[in-house]
């Protein structure tokens, strides 16, 4: 599956604050270049759509050039262009979609508008080879918390559940703020938690036993804020490491529990975890533990492929080319709420 004659796909991702450009040949990663506007957003405590859109426009051409350089390729080597058509921030998506259409038109190659979430699943094939059919995928990031049944990542992805309020990564950001840790919160909470106890405080686990495969993290976030405020009001020192560890434990407990419920319910033996929160060390450890106990094989791409990137878009594009899927028209829209049923548009 790594023949020299396989097509080279350029992937473009601009659904949030990362300008991601990837180059892939079949399942082989050739380049994965990212420009992030995170530093510009940090002082606002969240991603500002207009700031992200401006940064995408400025970063796109240099990032594409840098990816081509890294892969030792020229524009004329590109056989197809894939782009995240949604879901994501509308204005940010539009910059990537406009760029991808122009690259495809300028090079005279097919365009594939793809689903951001399906791309998060497809990327694992660059690292761990073909995805077993079917697999269960748990995608967790600042914008998404979804459980998917994936019979075929190129054409058939089914939503089993998702968050009813905050995304898991969003809860990490908000709790970090309450604890005085910087944005984005995920890595800081992970680090702080290593010196705390996950069982120190019994924070609530939303929708733990409700029989659905949906998530809820808003109540947890509020519970942490209340707990911290009460300590502060009483003049006590807030045990930051214990709060971080106990909050993190509550999140990853629910995530892994429901992911394995999905595996059992659909009799699937392969679980994939992707998205920015998949970089969390405790999530990886607990998922491994529970998968081992349940006889489920766990696949987690390396952190650079878990967070938003262009390689994942190229990986899904490559899959679509291989499956003989019809390319997208040049008038496809950027769709901020593209449903997962649309793997490609």
């Amino acid at each position: 599956m790594s023949g020299r004659d396989e097509p080279i796909v350029l992937g473009i991702e601009t659904s949030c604050d990362e300008t991601g450009v990837g180059l892939v040949r079949g399942h082989t990663l050739l380049a994965n270049t990212i420009a992030s506007s995170m530093e510009e957003h940090a002082r606002f405590g969240g991603v500002v759509p207009e700031v992200a859109s401006r940064a995408h426009l400025e970063a796109m051409a240099p990032t594409v050039e840098s990816a081509l350089d890294k892969a030792g390729l020229r524009f004329s080597d590109i056989d197809a262009v894939a782009v995240t058509a949604g879901p994501g921030l509308a204005g940010a998506l539009l910059v990537g979609v406009a760029a991808a259409k122009a690259y495809a038109l300028g090079l005279g190659v097919p365009l594939y508008g793809v689903n951001h979430l399906a791309a998060h699943v497809a990327v694992d094939q660059l690292e761990h080879g073909p995805l077993p059919k079917p697999s269960i995928a748990l995608l967790v990031s600042g914008g998404h918390s979804s459980l998917l049944l994936v019979p075929d990542v190129a054409q058939d992805v089914i939503s089993l559940g998702s968050t009813v309020d905050d995304a898991a990564g969003e809860a990490f950001d908000k709790v970090a703020r309450v604890l005085g840790l910087p944005f984005p919160g995920g890595p800081h909470i992970d680090r702080s938690a290593t010196s705390g106890s996950g069982t120190a405080i019994a924070f609530p686990r939303g929708k733990y036993d409700d029989g659905t495969l949906d998530f809820s993290f808003s109540g947890l976030k509020t519970a942490v804020a209340r707990w911290v405020e009460a300590r502060t009001a009483a003049g006590e020192t807030v045990p930051v490491a214990d709060v971080a560890a106990s909050f993190q434990e509550a999140v990853v407990d629910v995530l892994t529990r429901k992911a394995l419920q999905a595996c059992r319910r659909y009799d699937v033996k392969d679980l994939l975890i992707g998205g920015g929160v998949a970089a969390n060390s405790r999530l990886r450890a607990l998922a491994q533990e529970r998968c081992d106990a349940a006889g489920v094989r766990l696949r987690v791409p390396r952190p650079g492929l878990c967070t938003d990137n262009g390689a994942m878009v190229a990986a899904l594009g490559s899959e679509l080319v291989a499956a003989g899927i019809r390319p997208s028209a040049l008038d496809i829209p950027a769709d901020s709420s593209l449903p997962i049923t649309a793997v490609h548009v």
């Binding site: 859109s53 426009l57 796109m60 051409a61 910059v95 122009a102 690259y103 300028g106 090079l107």
Partner: peptide, 19 residues
């Protein structure tokens, strides 16, 4: 208005790079 404006500029710059 910025969202629309960027479409034209992004298109021009990407087309120019390929050509």
């Amino acid at each position: 208005p910025y969202t629309g404006l960027r479409v034209g500029l992004m298109t021009a710059s990407a087309l120019a790079a390929t050509v």
